[in-house]
Write a protein that binds this DNA or RNA. Structure first.
Lengths: 198, 198
DNA sequence: GATCCAATCTTTACACTGTAAAAATCATGG
DNA sequence: CCATGATTTTTACAGTGTAAAGATTGGATC
């Protein structure tokens, strides 16, 4: 009971393999990005043979999809938390969004990467969790804008935030500046947290 | 002389292999995305054995880098052309930017993908051509904004445009609308900020 | 023109990948 | 205690990138 199920091995039945695979895969993801995801390496690190994963995931892409789903869920939580905080602006949500991407660059890339994108087409759970993030933003906008302006404003904000997240992940920022502060400055240019346009 | 060097084969010496490899690779890229890039498949389509490519590229990543460099060059041209056109706004440049991504989704993904990103670190030519696109925008901003506002405005605009390009590539847009018009509407929101709060 | 050379391409080989199929091991309810 | 079902391993195959060595060729030099 007190044994660490994540690192246990030696027995034939691992006992806690699915979560272990996911956590190991996630570590791999942050070490080398989506390209570095390898069933064999995952198995190796989990102390298990490669095909063992096939009992829980029908393919490497399926495992990646599970990771991405985790990612969307966590991202959604972070945004919720930010919106519930002291600064309940959309701006706070955007900052949290970018911070999530910066904290989990490999995962974020996976979530919007193409290989996965193709696989996710058939996966309803992922389309749903992805849409949930989108809706968090849209709901807020609907309370503040005329109905006919919402769609474009939502796409505008998502583009800005998504793009900023990716550029920051790519290291496209002067070294030596606080990324959170920078993100806030840039997102503010959208005119969001401000009471009114100048 | 009048033979099509792109499809010639049969002879031991292909005669025009490097450009052929690049063009074949590019086709592959647009068929299946960066993940589908395969030296062996490239060789197959070029009518040549796989290691033949190693005379012109030190690795698959090097070939991908050459493609990305092409991409940045073309993107830069498109932006220049747009800025020289009747509507010499930055907006026109942004629309051209997004249109390029939409016309070459595989290439655009490669240009900003991670595998390539890692490889490009050492490649000076690519950092340069990438910076050139950035500078096109920055130059324009410097003519219109206070010096201390330029950096953040540039990052803001690039984030917005880059994000919009990627979301459109991902099909994140209602079907049945003209993508160019949509891009214009969304990019326009950057100028005035959001419409006034309700 | 014959000959040599350097550039170009092929063959072969190796280590790696995902994954299908069958066999082994174990946990558990009857 | 045993049979069954869940779990994991072994084995095998087709695919990949690429290193090394050999074959082929076009062009310069005599």
């Amino acid at each position: 009971m007190t044994t660490d199920m994540t690192t246990d091995r030696g027995r034939y039945h691992h006992g806690n393999l699915r979560p272990t695979l996911l956590s190991v895969a996630r570590a791999l993801l942050e070490e080398g990005g989506p390209e570095a995801l390898s069933l064999r390496e995952i198995g190796r690190r989990a102390g298990v043979s490669a095909p063992a994963a096939y009992h829980y995931f029908s393919s490497l892409d399926a495992l990646a999809a599970a990771l991405a789903e985790q990612g969307f869920a966590e991202l959604s939580e972070r945004i919720d938390a930010a919106l519930a905080g002291p600064r309940r602006h959309l701006l706070a949500g955007g900052i949290a969004y970018v911070a999530f991407a910066r904290a989990n660059p490999g995962l974020y890339r996976l979530m919007f990467g193409e290989g996965f994108q193709a696989y996710a087409k058939g996966n309803e759970a992922i389309g749903a969790s992805r849409m949930r993030v989108y809706r968090q933003m849209k709901d807020d906008l609907e309370r503040r804008l005329a109905p006919e302006a919402v769609a474009n404003a939502a796409l505008f904000l998502w583009s800005l935030t998504h793009g900023l997240a990716l550029l920051m992940i790519d290291g496209q920022i002067e070294p030596g500046v606080d990324p959170d502060a920078k993100a806030e400055e840039v997102l503010k240019l959208a005119g969001l947290g401000l009471p009114a346009a100048k």
